[in-house]
Design a protein around this nucleic acid. Structure first.
Length: 519
RNA sequence: GGCCCCUUCGUCUAGUGGUCUAGGACACCGGCCUUUCACGCCGGCAACACGGGUUCGAGUCCCGUAGGGGUCACCA
């Protein structure tokens, strides 16, 4: 049975790189018919774990990455919070001590630093002298009588090599001699992450450790702990980073200001921000950040599109397959095809995936997903009126390929606003509606509208063409001012659709409003 | 700096010694379509980091160099 895990630290947000790591773990477990466990790494005892964890769980739920054991769902190995497992870690440390594979160390920070400095001055790598190591109670008592306090350190091997058979990177070896006697327990009895992590992975029966590359160099000490405790080793797979756009440096949520200088990233951000702002949110790059998954949820991205994009960041099936449904991802995923080199985050490509996935959505779902955005923007009441679905569906259908994310429906807000209230682009108005002869055309076309029957796209097109011919004008002479009168904008979807969706009376109202603005 | 990892178009990637004058996708550029904006279609630009080997033959194997990245806590 394959059991994988993702172990977030409750920081209050879900990083896009973390999502990819979780995704790969999740895919591996799902495809092997195994289990995926969520464990919370809160050994530093943050005060408000609850609140800091919620956004992370929400993020996973939104993405549809479900866990078989962990917070909220429980499981046979509960608790899944490290802060609640300290007793277990202490036992493990005691065991290590008993076996002579760890020792109590009474050195002060200053003394240790002095040794480090000395090593550096002599240009050799630092190896602790173990001068304040206590292996017997007598030694310990002596140090304690000096008022010293003990931490517990690993008694790491000082010769030989540690071989890691990594499923992604192949064999990687480290000299044991370069490893430090890492601390596993503080003077106050609390235990450190690496110890806790190894104990938990054993207790939770984790078989495959799929994690970010940053943990590769931590692996020897974890192997030492596991072996010292007599645990079987899990299989390791170290994933390359998700890097910054156009660079190979690890993507970081804090460097958002820098990323905003990248035009593609900027565009992704601005697009999202304009949607969020129309939803009445005051956003800043601090809280509304494309490095974090909330961003995509709030803007109306499809979770499957985000996952599909992330899947291909460091993994591929072959030389052409790009689109994967959730089921296909599960079916085809293999660690063997994970890339070794870091992949940089490409905002443009993410949007392209989103667009493809969105376009495949049945109209009904597009409608359902658009409603909350209209509500947040104050364009539609809550609960939505029952006669909303039909016109909304027509708008979305007419907008067609112009929509990429659900929040884009707000680009067509004017359809949901009152005829005398929707905003009008003054520049476009001046250019087109104030143009020579435009007013007369609009007035005559308004009258023409009364004669068109039925008031649908086909009849409107025929009627408009006939009108244009009768007037002896070019199509564009009418279409441009008309579009601005009807929508307030110079760009939009097909004009016949626009007329049909608004309906006769609203078209007349809008044209009259435009004409009155000329006075 | 030590240790470890990585290196094919701007970006994501295919490529496991000959079928590679290196394929696909996104982006970009041009054209077509067209009532605007998109979409769509057609076309184009563009990469094996460098140097040595091994081999009849190297993007593919080996060594070195350079560059990039990660990590070196009583953080997780």
């Amino acid at each position: 049975m394959v059991r994988t895990r993702f172990a977030p630290s409750p920081t209050g947000y879900l990083h896009i790189g973390g999502v990819r790591t979780a995704l790969f773990n999740w895919l591996l477990s799902r495809q092997q018919g195994g289990q995926f466990i969520l464990r919370i790494d809160d050994t530093d005892q943050q005060r408000n774990v609850e609140a800091a964890l919620q956004p992370i769980l929400d993020g996973f739920r939104w993405l549809g990455i479900d866990w078989d054991e962990g917070p909220d769902v429980g499981g046979p190995h509960a608790p899944y919070f490290q802060s609640q497992r300290s007793e277990r870690y202490r036992q493990a440390v005691a065991q290590l001590l008993e076996r002579g594979l760890a020792y109590r160390d009474y050195a002060t920070t200053e003394e240790l630093q002095a040794e480090r400095d000395e090593a550096e001055a002599a240009k050799r790598s630092f190896v602790y002298s173990r001068r304040w190591m206590a292996e017997t109670d007598r030694q310990a008592a002596r140090f304690e009588s000096e008022g010293r306090q003990a931490v517990v350190r690993l008694k790491m091997p000082r010769e030989g090599v540690c071989l890691i058979r990594d499923l992604v990177r192949g064999d990687v070896s480290f000299d044991w001699a370069r490893e430090q006697d890492h601390v596993v327990q503080r003077a106050d009895g609390s235990c450190l992450y690496h110890l806790a992590s190894v104990v938990d992975d054993f207790d939770f029966e984790i078989t495959h450790l799929v994690r970010a590359e940053e943990h590769l160099s931590n692996t020897p000490r974890q192997i030492f702990i596991a072996q010292s405790l007599g645990y079987p080793l899990p299989a390791y797979a170290h994933l390359p980073y998700v890097a910054e756009p156009g660079s190979k440096t690890k993507l970081s949520k804090r460097k958002i200001a820098k990323y905003l200088k990248n035009p593609d990233f900027r565009q992704l951000y601005d697009h999202g921000q304009s949607i969020a702002e129309r939803c009445g949110r005051h956003v800043s790059a601090e809280t509304f950040n494309p490095v974090l998954v909330d961003f995509y949820r709030d803007v109306g991205y499809l979770p499957d599109a985000v996952l599909n994009y992330l899947l291909l960041l460091g993994w591929s099936l072959d030389d052409k397959t790009e689109d994967f449904s959730r089921e296909e991802m599960v079916r085809h995923f293999t660690l063997e095809r994970v890339n070794k080199a870091p992949a940089s985050f490409d905002p443009g490509k993410l949007l392209a995936f989103e667009q493809r996935h969105y376009q495949r959505l049945p109209l009904k779902q597009k409608v359902a997903r658009a409603v909350p955005f209209l509500q947040r923007a104050g364009l539609v009441a809550e609960p939505p009126p029952c006669d909303l679905a039909e016109p909304l569906g027509r708008v979305l259908e007419a907008a067609g390929e112009r929509l990429k994310v659900s929040g884009d429906v707000l680009d067509y807000a004017e359809f949901f606003q009152a005829d005398d209230l929707f905003p009008i682009d003054s520049r476009a108005f001046d250019q087109r509606v104030r143009a020579e002869g435009a007013a007369g055309l609009l007035a005559r076309f308004r009258d023409e509208l009364a004669r068109i029957e039925p008031f649908d796209t086909a009849a409107l097109e025929a009627g408009l063409r006939e009108f244009v011919e009768r007037e002896g004008i070019k199509m564009s002479d009418l279409i441009h001012p008309l579009r601005i009168a009807l929508t307030g904008k110079a760009v939009g979807f097909g004009l016949y659709d626009t007329l049909a969706i608004l309906g006769r009376q609203r078209c007349v109202n809008r044209i009259e409003r435009a004409l009155s603005m000329l006075a």
